[in-house]
Nucleic acid binder design. Structure first.
Lengths: 197, 197, 197, 197
DNA sequence: GATGAATGAGTATTCATTCAT
DNA sequence: CATGAATGAATACTCATTCAT
């Protein structure tokens, strides 16, 4: 009775190609036709799956931010020892890997969109909420272990995220590896000073 | 003190209307026709002044970033007393006024463009360089006056800018005034701790 | 008295939904997808039953005109007395009920189609032929009873239909109930004068 | 200062080609591209002049109905003698010429549109109002001259129009010249009987 | 300096339809 | 019987731009 749905697989496939087009052509030049062309399918097929381009963009942001979640969940705290986990966290958040994880162009295009589409803004907020949900218990464990001073864990989480995003924002722009190292070191030191004394 | 040519006046007028269209319609929907429409002139006139749209976008980014320079030069250090100037600087950089100074949508659209157009990237870099050119002597005067510890003034400048941009980035997204106050206070305290002890 | 096949039921169901879409969206915007959408079935299903859209339109016109036949057969002459039947006929043909019986938009869309598709033109001609097949014996009975003057019954039938369609055409457009009453009265008087003296 | 406007000429030219496409391809298949193709210009030029297709359709209906006005003003009463003018009017309104004046397909497509677009409905109403503005004084002159009985001139005008449109409607469909003659004769006789006794 | 004509490439989306399941 | 995948052609419309006036 009816044909087997390929929707989930196809949709993911489309979004992956969307990413490539976005990266290569830029947000303002990313069209359904170009994605379809790259996939070697008919443009109307994308409409078949997403109904409108707007819907596709929403799905794309969700898809993109989902990747970030996976990343920060996996990448950060792989140790039993709180001190080691604290060090890992800082090293990860202020590392060149993190800086280079995402295509600036794709991520900031989406960030820009968050200022124009409430739904996308919410997706971003959710992403940071999930990030904080991971960070806060971690921070509490650092406090318990006496690695950092007692203070409001949420504020500490916000603080870490802001430093991290500020650094990313600034160094994506500067494209200056030496400068990045200097700045990352300064920030890390500042974090340690702020939280441990 | 020469008279401004009509062309310069017209160009400025166009860029101001570009800003409005960008804000109201979004970057992806801002077209020459719409700007011309808003100005009640013929689209060809805009081409006449800027040759191409790309050229116009470049001019716009220059125009926009110019505004920022004016702002941070005027807004920050209006006192003779170094301590007072230090306080003013922190209060300005982590204030709601600063957060609300620019339309997020317009600024981040341009920031996004910096990842796709070398010339725009340079304009941004220049803007931050100028910001640093203002900050660094200021920072040195704080050190001299013993308000903050001795350290590399450029790193301190970068650090302040990164904190500021990180906060702006995060709170534009969060749109949560209470949260902003909490975060701003935490960051300010962190800056003081980092620099003065 | 055989059971209607599922296909026939389905087809009728489809045509009824076609009517709704035609009425709500207009002939130029009535698509298979929209009908299917309204019915909550897959568009391919409509093709399955009608092979092509054109075939479906033909079936629809047949279906629509069938309704008219039923109406004028039922609505008009429900009496034994010829005079009463004559009065009933006139009252029906120039009544507001008749005017409002059909959706103007749907009927005239089909009438328009008759100018482009021979098969649809024939369906319309047949419909009027059937109408005349009902009217002519009626008219003959009026003559026999001496209610109207002797003359060519077919011409009288044509004449009645033309007056009726002219009035409908004109008043659908005017949408002016007072004017309609005035016009209907004038026409009725004209008919009486024409036929009885 | 600026280029000379060709708008009026061009618009008329476009509408004339619209007529042809409408006639040849049918309302549902008349597209901007096809008109442009026929004119050997770029489709966007039509948009340049009319902004939207809808606007173009409105302009077209205006253009089409304007032709009718010209026709009935010129065609009908070219005599000084009231009796002759009365005869001329009837002969014109029930003549084959009148029947064949317009492409059925184009006119009824527009009539259909009047049921969907208030603005088009108004254009039709205006057209008939103008027709009546010509007919009513004429009718009054017939009464004055004793050619027809005294009665409400507006009702007489409506009556004539309805008969005329009814006949047109019916015979466009029937495409049967012999039948037309018979019907036209019957109607004319009926009109004479109705108005003169 | 400014307008309007004109173009050509591009946009998202809709459509009827075919075919596999 | 019915669904969903997929196509390809078509739709109105927008865009930046060129050129004549």
């Amino acid at each position: 009775m009816g044909r087997k749905s390929k929707a989930d697989v196809r949709k993911k496939e489309i979004l992956e190609h969307f990413y490539i087009v976005l990266k290569d052509e830029g947000f303002e030049n990313a069209s359904i036709a170009k994605i379809a062309n790259l996939m070697d399918v008919n443009p109307s097929l994308l409409i078949h799956y997403f109904k409108t381009k707007e819907e596709m963009v929403f799905a794309f942001v969700e898809f993109l931010l989902g990747r970030y979640e996976v990343t920060f969940k996996e990448a950060m705290f792989n140790s039993e020892d709180p001190q080691e986990r604290f060090d890992n966290t800082l090293n990860t958040m202020f590392s060149e890997d993190w800086l280079n994880f995402s295509e600036q162009t794709v991520f900031y295009a989406c960030y820009y969109l968050s200022s124009r589409h409430a739904r996308i803004k919410e997706l971003f907020q959710e992403m940071y909420t999930k990030f904080k949900d991971v960070l806060i218990p971690e921070i509490q464990s650092w406090m318990k272990a006496g690695i950092i001073e007692e203070s409001d864990p949420e504020s500490v989480a916000d603080y870490l995220i802001i430093m991290n995003e500020g650094l990313t924002y600034f160094d994506k722009l500067m494209s200056d590896p030496e400068g990045f190292k200097r700045r990352a070191a300064f920030l890390k030191a500042s974090v340690v000073k702020t939280l441990t004394t």
